[in-house]
Design a binder for these strands. Sequence first.
DNA 1: ATTACTACGCGCCGAGTAA
DNA 2: TTTACTCGGCGCGTAGTAA
Lengths: 215, 215
Amino acid sequence: MIESLLKELALHGAINRYILVTTSQIGASLGISQQSASRWISKTAEMGLIRKESVGRNIKVKITREGLNILKYEFFRYLILFGSPAIITLKGIVISGLGEGKYYVMKGGYRTQIHQKLFFDPYPGTLNVKLYPEYIEKFGEILEHEPVILDGFSEGDRNYGRVFSYFATLNGTPGALIVPEMTQYRDTVEIISEYSLREKHRLKDGTNVEIKVYL
Amino acid sequence: MIESLLKELALHGAINRYILVTTSQIGASLGISQQSASRWISKTAEMGLIRKESVGRNIKVKITREGLNILKYEFFRYLILFGSPAIITLKGIVISGLGEGKYYVMKGGYRTQIHQKLFFDPYPGTLNVKLYPEYIEKFGEILEHEPVILDGFSEGDRNYGRVFSYFATLNGTPGALIVPEMTQYRDTVEIISEYSLREKHRLKDGTNVEIKVYL
DNA sequence: ATTACTACGCGCCGAGTAA
DNA sequence: TTTACTCGGCGCGTAGTAA
């Protein structure tokens, strides 16, 4: 639990600086109640792993050196397991899809699998990014790596094909790159995320974005 | 808990193959009882994250694709936090120290800090490795990175200086590289670990070893 | 030596709520 | 809106033990 809390706070940016958080927000992220989040934050602060201060009715927290050490240690253990990963960076511009993304992502068959295999609840919609030509080859390289596979399924008389996915960030926000097995487009990629990437990063058609794919 | 269990089993080599384990062993690694370990292993198996089989009175386990996905996801989240780390590889041969390592590591002042900051109970002794000349420069590079600092302390009328440490593996076994702040030797490095590295890897003076330092 | 059952008690979680 | 208290219930961990 403490490790998860530290990780969550770190992902919110609490390394080296205070961040404003609410206990319900953290609770929701960790899948526990507001009350439990409050209690764990206090407990972790008492252990000296984070520093907590009240700001009016709200709180701000920051991870201490001791807390950071725990995260570094756990990261070290993962590195022993997986080695240093390949990270491929893609760049391109935001374009509008056909609005199909939304339709697909929310299809029960995919949505459940995204939850089970990618571990987030997808925002209903995909972000389409048209790659700059020099990145198209790199996109090909990604496809040579082992994906997380979302199985195809049938609904009514319609068949939905397999989708290959890879953990990725868009401008630093975590999500996944998804590639339908059957698709003719190889210069455009689709990203899904827990958040509305368009809103979070104020993206419009034509905005430059950076995608990092972790393999 | 489940994440910790999966990580522990993975570090024991349960990715892609069955490993023989005992519930007490896993319990000890996780800091819980044999009974609890037994229950968690069964529960995790029921969830489909590991596969468990009985071998006589013992058990063997292996992580499933689903379990591996969880580990990959958590690793992905750490990568977002820390980025791809620098890993520096050093090679050299085992040599005998002056037997001082044992004396130092077990000194209360250091031992407690190793537990708190490096998260393992050190085997009483250090492994000394004399680097091949071509790796001495790389050792210098390591020292430019931020270490985990073990503070100096006084005991009786003797002063013990600060020690810089870095998470590292020796032939794949996790531990730490330690560098006393005040030392004249720059071609010899010391490694500590939870285990007796000499026994675990059957090392004798003169044996080649590989150290990977995670920065 | 194992695994894993039952019993039991502590502690954690979340509901309700005050401030 | 917040944070964080009290309280009741249940889940988890450990002791004891059978196989």
